[in-house]
């Protein structure tokens, strides 16, 4: 079997007495859309944060395309082709949409220790930003301050920022959280497009969307992967039904 794009082995992370990530092992093949589902507090965000380097694991390892990245800082992982969106929108609020995205492009286009030339006049960066904004359908809002954008628009900018760094692997933490019905549909369509170009790890509560999009699904409960497989096998899995899918309250309850 070929080396998977992302390999997570026996990852453990505790918060005080809570084991938020409990011996998680996971593989994401190149080109795959791998969904991670689980009730609130299952440890999905914690897992993503360890993949991106925002949180250090207590043990276990993470490797990207065969390279051990367990102890690399976030910015180095990003340079290696990992990009994330945040569950709770995390953008530069006092910058325009275009600036937010252009900065992501800038991080991957040569040194940023340039002190004299006006960066907003660098055509390459601006073009890259507009292309990414166009992808998420926000080209017309490019020059608006992010603080003036709606919640839904900010979710889309999150995605555009991640895209602008031309990642190999996209880690999306609940991209649809808080979106309206039409906005959600738009996002699903967009993800349908994106999955053709980039591997994706998708954390999402919207079950129809997950089952429509995912190649493989891993189910996380209390920090542990209780099942992993293609959508049909997950749908049929008794453990999953009992722990999670059967309980509609949890599914519809967003966090």
């Amino acid at each position: 079997m070929a080396e998977p794009l992302l390999r997570v082995e026996k990852l453990v992370r505790r918060f005080g007495g809570i084991i938020a990530t409990d011996n998680v092992s996971l593989e994401v093949a190149s080109g795959e859309l791998h969904a991670i589902i689980g009730p609130n507090g299952a440890g999905k965000t914690t897992l993503i944060s360890q993949l991106t380097g925002h949180l250090a694991p207590h043990s276990g390892s993470v490797s990207l395309a065969g390279r051990d990245i367990t102890y690399l800082p976030a910015y180095r992982r990003c340079a290696l082709g990992l990009a994330r969106s945040f569950q709770i929108t995390s953008l530069l609020l006092d910058f325009t949409a275009a600036d937010n995205v252009a900065l992501a492009a800038q991080a991957h286009a040569g040194t940023s220790f340039r002190f004299f030339a006006n960066a907003r006049k660098e055509k390459d960066l601006r073009d890259a930003a507009h292309a990414a904004l166009d992808r998420v359908g926000l080209a017309h809002r490019a020059d608006v301050l992010v603080s003036k954008l709606s919640h839904g628009e900010r979710r889309q900018i999150e995605l555009a920022v991640a895209l602008a760094s031309r990642p190999k692997l996209l880690l999306l933490d609940e991209p649809m959280a808080g979106l309206g019905v039409t906005e959600s549909q738009g996002m699903v369509k967009l993800l349908q497009e994106l999955r053709k170009e980039v591997s994706i790890v998708l954390v999402e509560h919207d079950m129809p969307a997950v089952f429509a999009l995912a190649d493989r699904i891993s189910v996380l409960v209390y920090g542990r992967v209780i099942a992993s497989g293609d959508p049909d096998s997950i749908r049929a899995n008794e453990d999953v039904k009992r722990a999670y899918l059967g309980d509609q309250h949890v599914v519809t309850h967003h966090g």
Binding site: T52, H54, P73, A74, Y75, C78, A79, A83, R84, F86, S90, L91, L92, L93, D94, F95, D99, L103, A104, Q106, A107, H108, T111, S112, F113, R114, F115, F116, A117, N118, A119, R120, E122, V161, A164, S165
Partner: peptide
């Protein structure tokens, strides 16, 4: 207004985000 300046101002605004898009703060 330079590349460097935008990075520094971005760090003021949201350091976590800047790290995530690949800048060593």
């Amino acid at each position: 207004n330079s590349r460097f300046g935008l990075v520094v101002q971005g760090l003021r605004s949201n350091e976590q985000r800047m790290q995530a898009i690949g800048f060593p703060a």
